[in-house]
Design a protein around this nucleic acid. Structure first.
Ligand SMILES: [Mn+2]
Ligand SMILES: [Mn+2]
Ligand SMILES: [Zn+2]
Ligand SMILES: [Zn+2]
Lengths: 158, 158
DNA sequence: TCCAATTTTAGATTTAGTCTAAGAATGTGG
DNA sequence: CCACATTCTTAGACTAAATCTAAAATTGGA
């Protein structure tokens, strides 16, 4: 029955990243809310409850969190990067019609083939992304908004 | 002995994409030169020999080429997308120190596991990207800066 | 408490990419 | 060949994404 606050404190302690109020708020929002948000979305949401939080700080915090492994970035062709609080290992599916990013269950790569391909390089991370049409778009129920950066309502004090 | 011109004509014919001088120039440059160039790099290079080629046209051409499968985009976290003339199937390695993108030999995914993870989604393409430290950076003799925006903030020897 | 290092901030700046509206090129059918 | 609709290209304005700056605030430790 650890609260989220304690959980995040442990996460910060584990990685050695200094836990500032801003970093905490950004990570807490990511953990609690929809994944794959853009920096701008995070800024707007967190800034609502913490008036004095600047865009630059969101970027700073996200960079720090990514570097320490608490957050994973997802690059999207021609659009703003998205961010994912990595609780569990998983892969991604990006719909090329609506731009939505969905989580896929983790599955392993053939380690031997991969190592052969990587040669002498030091591999820190493997990223697998499937591209295609999501089920909603396949059903024709598409809003055709490849750049879906409009508000999430609903935010709460941390 | 087909020249590059004939090869590209065939490629355009095969995909059904209209071959305009601008699209041809962009694709020809990609095929001939370094892969993984940004739209801006392509614009600057091609524009040198064809004074009347606009930035918008480079983007238009790249999008058309990507859509028809002659070029593949490579999204990079926090930096401009790069473009790759796809001659052969391969994967990518991105160095998180210098930002360089290197080609890796193709290897297959466990198709069964992948299909299970994808569920009902229509998968058009699979993208595998390894992240880590390239051999040059590992050796500490980095003088290249292929992705200048990746070397922001603190960068020591890389 | 004091201090140096780190972090945050607002706003300016740079970079990436799209959009617009007018003109040029293309191809098709006559 | 021409007429004409369609597609493509263009310059530059515009929007969006991300970084930079330098001053102020916060922090942890001595
Ligand atoms: Mn995810
Ligand atoms: Mn490549
Ligand atoms: Zn979709
Ligand atoms: Zn490197």
């Amino acid at each position: 029955m650890d609260g989220i606050r304690e959980k995040l404190q442990k996460a910060f302690a584990r990685t050695g990243l200094r836990r500032t109020p801003q970093r905490h708020d950004v990570l807490a929002w990511l953990v609690r809310h929809k994944r794959h948000a853009t920096a701008e979305e995070i800024y707007e949401a967190v800034n609502r409850s913490n008036q004095r939080l600047s865009r630059a700080t969101v970027y700073n915090a996200l960079h720090a969190l990514v570097e320490s492994g608490l957050v994973r970035p997802v690059a999207v062709e021609g659009a703003a990067s998205r961010f994912d609080s990595t609780l569990d290992r998983h892969h991604h599916f990006i719909c090329d019609r609506c731009g939505d990013i969905e989580d896929l269950a983790w599955f392993d790569l053939p380690g031997k083939a991969m190592q052969a391909a990587a040669g002498g390089r030091a591999v820190r991370d493997v990223e697998i992304t499937l591209h295609g049409t999501c089920e909603r778009c396949a059903r024709g129920k598409t809003k055709h908004t490849p750049n879906p950066s409009k508000t999430r309502g609903e935010q709460k004090a941390c």
